[in-house]
């Protein structure tokens, strides 16, 4: 065999630049996202000034903003018994969400992973779970109250249940449908046991699905906490909504709704940050 000249391996064509792709993140652009809210506020304010409904049921934007800020600060007292106590209700809801979400999310991931890894387990368990899944979470409320009484436990139970299904289904799917060629790659590299293949390949390739399930679950968790608090609990945003309805205070109802939106959005962003931090390989 002849000795072969070493061709210059750093040549042309199929090599991209080793530099980072130019960042597009911090580019300033027109804040298009503001257009819709501004229009909505203008329409709302116009409708409110036409006084088609009593101001109590259809308050002006100014009233809503004042009430909302008052629940936070207690400066004006316009929110009456909700003046300055926003945090109390935020914490009450958040506590239930955190505990219920943790329980439902962890069990969803664990059981989904086991069902994804072991066909027999999947065959045993999945049909029953699929039968329970169409039952709306609200339909569990009577049983939840009957079993756990009122206050935190029934709410936590509902949140855990609501979180469980999407995390279970997505985790199971991600684990089950891992690309077989990646499994082969790991096997040819010397990994043989199920545990090795799980930690080297299956878990990582299922992560995007696991996070999808976690994010869907988070939305459902907020839905569940509000529902539970409307019926079974005497604190939290859900309670605030229902209580304000009983006193026909639309400004407080809307404050409660905005609060749920803001907190729900913030926690979803947090989850997204966590996802980006864990899944560094995805842009």
């Amino acid at each position: 065999m002849s000795v072969i000249d070493k061709p210059s391996s750093g040549t042309a064509m199929d090599k991209a630049s080793p530099g980072k792709p130019p960042g597009t993140r911090f580019r300033l652009s027109f804040p298009y996202f503001l257009i819709v809210p501004v229009i909505a506020i203008v329409i709302w304010e116009t409708a409110s000034r036409l006084e088609l409904l009593p101001a109590m049921l259809f308050p002006s934007v100014g009233t809503i903003v004042t009430t909302a800020l008052d629940t936070l600060t207690g400066w004006w007292g316009t929110a009456d018994w909700y003046s300055g106590v926003w945090y109390v209700h935020a914490l009450a809801s958040a506590k239930r969400v955190i505990i219920g979400y943790f329980l439902g999310g962890v069990s969803g991931i664990v059981i989904g992973t086991i069902a994804g890894m072991f066909g027999l387990f999947h065959k045993m368990l999945d049909p029953s779970l699929q039968l329970l899944r169409p039952i709306p979470i609200v339909a569990w409320i009577p049983l939840a109250i009957a079993w756990f009484g009122i206050e935190d436990q029934p709410a936590i139970f509902l949140i855990a249940l609501g979180t469980f299904f999407p995390t279970y289904i997505n985790a199971r799917h991600g684990i089950r449908y891992v690309d077989p060629v990646l499994i082969r790659a790991a096997r040819m590299l010397g990994y043989a046991t199920s545990w090795e293949l799980f930690t080297r390949v299956v878990f990582w390739s299922a992560l995007p699905n696991i996070f999808t399930g976690l994010r869907i679950g988070l939305g459902i968790a907020w839905m569940c906490v509000v529902t539970a608090e409307m019926l079974a609990v005497k604190s939290g945003f859900g309670y605030m909504l229902w209580d304000s309805f009983n006193f026909l205070r639309a400004d407080l109802i809307i404050t409660g709704m905005i609060s749920i939106a803001v907190v729900g959005y913030a926690t979803d962003r947090l989850m997204l940050l966590l996802q980006h931090a864990v899944m560094k390989w995805e842009r």
Binding site: R184, G190, A192
Partner: peptide, 26 residues
């Protein structure tokens, strides 16, 4: 399969979650 036989697949089959160096060192 075993580490005595390295395989190169048609569809590269690299682990997307590992950097190039970690793929090579996997």
């Amino acid at each position: 399969p075993g580490p005595d036989r390295g395989v190169v697949f048609q569809e590269h089959a690299l682990f997307p979650w590992l950097r190039v160096e970690d793929n090579v060192g996997a």
